[in-house]
């Protein structure tokens, strides 16, 4: 199923040096058909999703080890039974290899978890694989609306 109007990806990441780079990689992929909406603060991202006029979001990329918001709490709220947004796939971006924490994220409903390396080349490769898989091979709930 194609997205004729392109894809909106919500990026939640407080790293003001790396997040713009991630945004740029994503927006220049897939023939410039991706729009990234970036929030440094997860609480503001939640508020944005609750605005009725917000565009449909295809994927959420959530940095879990933030110092300015509680990433696990944001995940928990998004995937709560009562959340209107729990159908949106969430991919956790994690700097650490804390497998217990990662397992906890999966238990809370994260759809996937990928490494967020500091090396720009490796990061670009990982994001390329993520986009290729989710936008080419998977069916996204946003394609249904």
């Amino acid at each position: 199923m194609d997205h004729p109007n392109g894809y909106n990806i919500l990026l939640v990441d407080d790293d003001i040096e790396q997040a713009p780079f991630i945004k740029q990689i994503l927006e220049t992929s897939f023939s410039n058909r991706i729009t990234v909406i970036w929030f440094e603060n997860g609480v503001e991202a939640l508020d944005f999703l609750d605005i009725k006029t917000s565009p449909p979001i295809s994927l959420i990329l959530l940095e879990i080890e933030s110092t300015i918001y509680d990433g696990v709490s944001i995940l928990e709220q998004l995937k709560d039974e009562s959340s209107h947004h729990r159908i949106i796939p969430i991919i956790i971006l994690s700097r650490s290899r804390d497998l217990r924490r990662i397992k906890g994220c999966f238990s809370l409903g994260a759809n996937s978890c990928v490494k967020k390396p500091s090396d720009p080349k490796v990061l670009r490769n990982i994001l390329g694989v993520v986009l290729e898989f989710w936008l080419t091979h998977a069916i996204l709930p946003s394609s249904l609306t």
């Binding site: 994690s94 290899r97 497998l99 990662i102 397992k103 994220c105 999966f106 996937s112 978890c113 990928v114 490494k115 990982i126 694989v129 993520v130 898989f133 091979h137």
Partner: peptide, 11 residues
């Protein structure tokens, strides 16, 4: 390629 090589396998 995605689930075993890119995704972090929680188990």
């Amino acid at each position: 390629l995605y689930w075993l090589r890119t995704n972090t396998t929680p188990s």
